[in-house]
Nucleic acid binder design. Structure first.
Lengths: 147, 147
DNA sequence: ATGACTGCAAAAGTTTTGCAACGGT
DNA sequence: ACCGTTGCAAAACTTTTGCAGTCAT
């Protein structure tokens, strides 16, 4: 997809969610689309600076919170390092292999949850809202660098 | 299990890991065993204060980090609220249903991972270290309170 | 007695908030 | 023109660190 097409797609997504289409929001969505990796607010901020886009880190935080509240991005903190990470919500039901070292995410097709969802609903009285399934380890590159 | 038995068990666990057996460590493990819920450092701290145990919050943090490094507790930050939570490592391979509201954890026997582990190893060159599988929603009590 | 652990204070790091100015619809 | 968004500064909050004294082995 071209950058222009992408920009247009983001613009439409913002409209659909009823929030304003600003250059910062488009830029942040662009960064997340480009890196295809969950980024901390600071990483997003630095990426923007690299592109000579002037923005304040509080705006990055506010934007990422807003986008996550609207479902355009997903906030998670799976790394347990005290930093929240944000990624584009690709709106596909996907899970990932996550490299502990470089944070690369490798999407996988498997979703084990659906198989046991029914089973669970009957066994325990629990209203399921969502689930998280992530596998941690070293990707092929980091694996070879590591030893 | 009686409190005394528990204390003895914790003491042995600390010895086994080669770290000192102090009243604070025993107390913190006790809180985690008692609540059976992932707690933030502050929650652990407040629980201790309730029991008139004098401790500094930095000690709570240091202790929880140490216990997690030794595998006696597990650190996670699945709630995406910027706070790390710690729970007892019961040393069983378990996953949980986690109530979004009260943070209650309901253990489940299912682990979908093992079924697809082999499959993945072949498909992608990825060295698996661990995985996280959690299901979020409302437990039966919070469910009825909610609507 | 030695080294690990803790009390305490202070700093570091991340995230949030307030307010005025700015920008999109 | 209106109201959501952003720049900027400052505060709030979570977590870490340093050092001296204490405690477990």
């Amino acid at each position: 997809m071209s950058l222009l097409q992408e920009k247009e797609r983001f613009k439409e997504a913002l409209e659909e969610k009823g929030i304003k289409n600003t250059k910062h929001r488009i830029a942040i969505l662009g960064i997340l689309a480009e890196t295809q990796m969950p980024l901390t607010a600071e990483e997003v901020f630095l990426n923007l600076k690299d592109k000579d886009i002037s923005i304040w880190i509080s705006t990055v935080y506010r934007t990422l919170e807003t986008l996550s509240a609207k479902g355009l991005t997903i906030k998670s903190s799976f790394m347990d390092d005290g930093k929240a990470r944000y990624q584009l919500n690709q709106n596909e039901h996907k899970h990932h292999l996550i490299c502990i070292k470089c944070h690369k995410m490798i999407p996988i097709d498997e979703c084990p949850f659906h198989d046991i969802e029914e089973e669970l609903k009957d066994k325990v009285n629990f209203q399921v809202i969502g689930h998280k399934f992530e596998i941690y380890g070293y990707c092929s590159e980091c694996k070879s660098l590591n030893r």
